[in-house]
Design a protein around this nucleic acid. Structure first.
Length: 652
RNA sequence: GGGCCCGUAGCUCAGUAUGGAUGGAGCACCGGCCUCCGGAGCCGGAGGUCCCGGGUUCAAGUCCCGGCGGGCCCGCCA
């Protein structure tokens, strides 16, 4: 029975460490295992082996010359018995390079791949946690945009990764059905309900909302203009009116009939703004008419969200209505009461509104030092409006509690622009007695997706719907599929275009580190060359093609010593490392590590494919070993894409 | 005024948490490769003051300090 591991590369690492330890002991050098584990690194170039130990730190400790030390240790280790380490060489000014025996490594890899199939590399944690990933949570006033799309893709891949890691993960969508934006949309919707055409409802609201908003803004500004006394204010107001008129004009062009109708209906109202405020108050109080209209709107918009999301294979376990959790339950008022009980000194009244001195709380709890915050004044947080209605952050505190009660850990994918509010929220959680806030409640911040010219703004109706991006991508893939003119049926072509087109969008949004802003460009997001999902799927199809034509069944019983080509060596090493990369991606919440990995593996395989023929190989043993290598590539791509929740086309 | 984030090739980005040997890709540009296991591919070329200046270190794209440029945020929006 061969010793086997689900992380092949680790066998090599452990052997390197063992050799080092033994050689140090022989040289009577005191235990320095920590130094070793920390220092062992991947060398910058292929010819320097697979792992290296820089001896400078050790040499300094021992007051030795690093070069000589490296030479001495390497010589010693070269004489020792070993299995996975083929060569040990001193190099440079004080490095020891370790070269892997990739024939042995290939045996381990093939065993693991045969045993685990497309579960290969998805190493489970010892202690699974209950984790909630809250993501997407787009406001129900317009369709999902490329911005919320980025959120959705990040959140979904995190949820998927953590699930693959063995955690008990639930994906939650927070429905923001409370607040003025939704009320504006509901107010406009109530005016034009029967005029709405057959298109996707979220898209309809996506135009009604900004139209209503601009009309109400203009009416309100005109009133202020009448009341204004001095010329300076008048000029400012006029400037603002001009801007909004421009926006309204832009919006009217999209649907003149709808706009004019909406305008006439809103003009019938004496004071639209106060009607919106009243709707807001009524809704928070649960008045039946208000609930009917707002709920009706939100449900219909969410139906549109679900269609878009399911197209991206994104599912949620829970839809959490803000109104239910935070408002109607009276929980928001309870939380405010609790804060008052614990820290009455931190609450202030300001023109009728209730304000929390967050800075005082942070100081009192010693959080600034503990959380490494700058020693600066933190801004205050308004907990309740003067009219008694609640505010987003206050409601979010309640929601945070609600989530924390259900899970060990809560990951919230929320835009980076909310960093301050999220910090304030965490401080309040700590005040209310939540332990380990900083590890249990995570704000996973992502930067916005910007347009090349103008800024995106839902209030102005300037945004790119995620649906449009998906359609564009799928259409472009469809054109490519047609070009190939293959013998596929229409139905198959359609499916392939969908899988690859959607995958291309997901990959593009995921591949850039979340903390970096993306400037949106169709040609860049929807690119089908290297470093794209189509490229990866293409690689996969190539591997499948080889396997299909050779009637192959996986087995570790192949002669790995036949894999002598340098690309074969590279591929074996790369795949043996995959489980380690998966673990890091899941534990450090870095899905982009896996998109990068997939791309690298694909590049390697395509180079190999160009240089080495598998099927035509005459030597039976060599052919079998190569087939197993190709099968492993196919398997790793399946495992990795599955962990990120992508689908793969079998042909393209 | 303050806080957070970003600054790496003409453009878009990896690499920075945990410092290590000649700083990697893609796009665009130039030049090659289809009697193929499907060219959505492969090979080569050109292209870098890693924003600037100090400091720590045997060693800095990476850590520290100070600047510069861009984005976001700073009590009744979400």
């Amino acid at each position: 029975m061969r010793m086997s591991s689900s992380i092949p590369f680790k066998l090599f690492e452990e052997e390197c460490l063992k050799l080092l330890k033994t050689s140090l002991e022989e040289s009577r050098i005191e235990s320095t295992e920590n130094v070793l584990v920390r220092s062992l690194e991947i060398p910058p170039a292929r010819e320097m082996g697979e792992l290296a130990l820089p001896c400078f730190e050790l040499a300094k400790l021992l007051r030795r010359n690093p070069k000589e030390l490296a030479e001495e240790l390497a010589a010693k280790m070269s004489l020792m018995e070993r299995k996975y380490v083929s060569d040990i060489k001193p190099a440079g000014l004080g490095y020891i390079n370790f070269y892997v025996n990739h024939f042995e490594l290939a045996q381990e890899l093939f065993t693991a791949v045969t045993n685990f199939g497309s579960q290969y590399g998805l190493i489970k944690v010892e202690r699974p946690l209950k984790i909630i990933v809250e993501h997407t949570s787009g406001n129900p006033i317009h369709p999902l945009t490329i911005g919320t799309g980025r959120n959705a893709v990040i959140g979904d891949s995190l949820a998927s990764l953590l699930r693959s890691r063995g955690h008990d993960v639930k994906a939650h969508f927070y429905v923001n059905d409370v607040g003025l934006q939704v009320m504006i949309a509901a107010y406009g919707y109530s005016k034009v309900m029967d005029k709405i055409k057959g298109e996707k409802f979220d898209h309809s609201i996506g135009i009604i909302y900004p139209m209503t908003n601009s009309i109400v803004e203009i009416i309100e500004l005109r009133k202020r203009l009448e009341r204004a006394s001095d010329d300076e204010t008048k000029r400012e107001i006029l400037k603002e009116i001009d801007e909004w008129v421009g926006i309204a004009y832009e919006l009217r062009n999209k649907d003149p009939e709808l706009f004019d109708y909406l305008l006439s209906k809103i003009s019938e109202d004496e004071d639209p703004k106060s009607m919106i405020s009243k709707l807001n108050k009524d809704y928070e109080e649960g008045a039946r008419e208000a609930v009917e209209i707002v709920r009706g709107l939100c449900k219909a918009v969410i139906e549109g969200f679900k269609q878009t999301l399911s197209r991206m294979w994104i599912k949620f376990d829970s839809w959490d209505w803000e109104s239910e959790i935070a408002v109607w339950s009276k929980a928001t008022e309870e939380v405010i009461g609790k804060i008052g009980d614990i820290a009455p000194w931190a609450l202030e009244r300001s023109e009728g509104a209730l304000v929390l001195n967050v800075n005082g709380v942070a100081s009192a709890l010693n959080l600034k030092e503990k959380w490494g915050l700058a020693d600066k004044e933190l801004p205050k947080l308004t907990l309740r409006r003067a009219d008694g209605t609640s505010l987003y952050t206050t409601r979010d505190i309640v929601y945070a509690f609600w989530k924390l009660k259900k899970a060990d850990k809560v990951i919230n994918v929320i835009g980076a622009e909310q960093s301050l509010a999220q910090l304030q929220l965490k401080i309040v959680l700590a005040l209310l007695g939540v332990k380990d806030v900083e590890t249990r409640y995570i704000h996973y911040a992502y930067e916005l997706v910007k347009l090349p010219g103008a800024k995106m703004s839902s209030r102005r109706g300037r945004y790119i719907p995620l649906d449009d991006l998906l359609n564009e991508s799928v259409n472009r893939v469809r054109i490519e599929v047609e070009k190939r003119g293959s013998a596929l049926s229409e139905e198959e072509k359609k499916e392939i275009a969908e899988v690859i087109g959607v995958g291309a969008v997901k990959y593009a949004l995921l591949n850039v580190t979340a903390s970096k802003p993306i400037t949106f460009d169709f040609d860049q997001v929807v690119n089908f060359e290297r470093n794209s999902f189509p490229f990866i799927n293409y690689t996969y199809v190539r591997a499948l093609g080889i396997l299909r034509k050779s009637s192959f069944t996986p087995t570790p019983n192949v002669d790995t010593s036949k894999l002598t080509h340098e690309y074969e060596r590279e591929l074996v090493i790369q795949m043996a490392k995959y489980p380690k990369i998966f673990i890091e991606a899941a534990d450090e919440l870095k899905p982009e590590l896996l998109t990068n990995y997939l791309n690298q593996l694909s590049e390697l395989f395509n180079s190999y494919y160009e240089k080495v023929n598998v099927i035509k190989e005459k030597d039976e043993e060599t052919r079998k070993a190569r087939l197993m290598l190709v099968y492993s590539i196919k398997t790793v791509i399946e495992s990795c894409t599955k962990a990120l929740n992508f689908k793969l086309a079998q042909r393209m």
